[in-house]
């Protein structure tokens, strides 16, 4: 269906858009590339590349999407499309777990626009701010979103209360530090595990380290030097440093899980507000 001749670019782009609407994203990505090929000098190329990037995002090819977006010369593109490109760039960076780059692109998007952000763009901004732990700004943006919505006063107030409760200091995702977890386990084996929310693993680590060092000292006391050093201290050495590494790894997992849980709650709330 792609290999027949198409005389003008609008037809090629129209075909690509139809495929995109049908959810045939791979086929759409080829059709957009075809538009680029047919009219390399035309301004329609910018839109085709942008849409190709969106198709790639749907195909979970975020790196490829960013590569397409990077090819677009932002300085010579109309503001409306430029906003979309920056939005898409920020989105793909967030999906690639690069929240700082996502925020930087979103800031560029805000600077580009003369008018306020469209309500459909705000959820992404809030998620990016959450990932960057800019809680006050995220809360303010969400409250402004509620203010801008055509809702009854009591409903607005109810949403605002929910938002304040969501962003209450005790409800925010904990920022588990790998360094702190490691240091805690350095002083008390297992403490880092407990800090990251794995108490049973922490207790097991503490007991293993205690048993190993206890056995080592016991054997040393009774002049079993080889036994003390090789089995007691040898096992302790391995489990002590291994435990520190494990605690740091658990901190990373816990931080990720906390953020995911919080963003899931936040996304659900935004969807209900925008419904």
């Amino acid at each position: 269906m792609f290999l027949t001749k198409v005389s003008g670019q609008p037809e090629a782009l129209h075909r690509a858009d139809s495929l995109f609407k049908e959810g045939a994203f791979f086929e759409a990505s080829i059709a957009y590339e075809r538009t680029v090929y047919l009219q390399p000098e035309s301004k329609v190329v910018h839109r085709a590349r942008y849409k190709k990037a969106v198709a790639y995002r749907h195909l979970h090819r975020y790196e490829d999407a960013l590569r397409e977006l990077d090819r677009l010369p932002l300085f010579s593109i109309a503001d409306t499309l430029k906003s979309r490109i920056l939005y898409e760039t920020a989105f793909n960076h967030l999906l690639l777990d690069k929240p700082e780059e996502a925020l930087w692109n979103f800031r560029r998007l805000e600077k580009t626009r003369e008018e306020p952000l469209h309500s459909s763009m705000i959820p992404l901004k809030i998620l990016i701010l959450n990932h960057n732990r800019k809680w006050e700004e995220a809360k303010g943006t969400l409250l402004s979103l509620v203010d801008s919505m055509p809702l009854r006063p009591h409903k607005k107030q109810s949403w605002k209360d929910s938002i304040k409760s969501l962003y209450d200091e005790d409800s925010l995702p904990k920022n588990y530090s790998e360094e702190k977890a490691k240091n805690l386990s350095r002083f008390i084996p297992g403490a880092g595990h407990i800090y990251t929310g794995y108490p049973w693993e922490g207790a097991a680590s503490f007991l293993l380290n205690g048993a190993a060092i206890g056995f080592g000292i016991h054997q040393l006391w009774y002049k079993y030097y080889f036994t003390a050093y090789i089995t007691g201290f040898g096992i302790f050495y391995k489990s002590y440093f291994g435990g520190m590494k494990r605690a740091a790894h658990l901190a990373e997992i816990a931080r990720h899980n906390e953020m995911k849980k919080f963003n899931d709650k936040c996304s659900a709330m935004m969807m209900r507000i925008l419904k």
Partner: peptide, 21 residues
Amino acid sequence: PPSTGFLRHLMDREYYKEVVY
């Protein structure tokens, strides 16, 4: 006609999966 030029365009950009498709 298949759009030969387009196939070439895809090959040059290493879009091999797309060419095969």
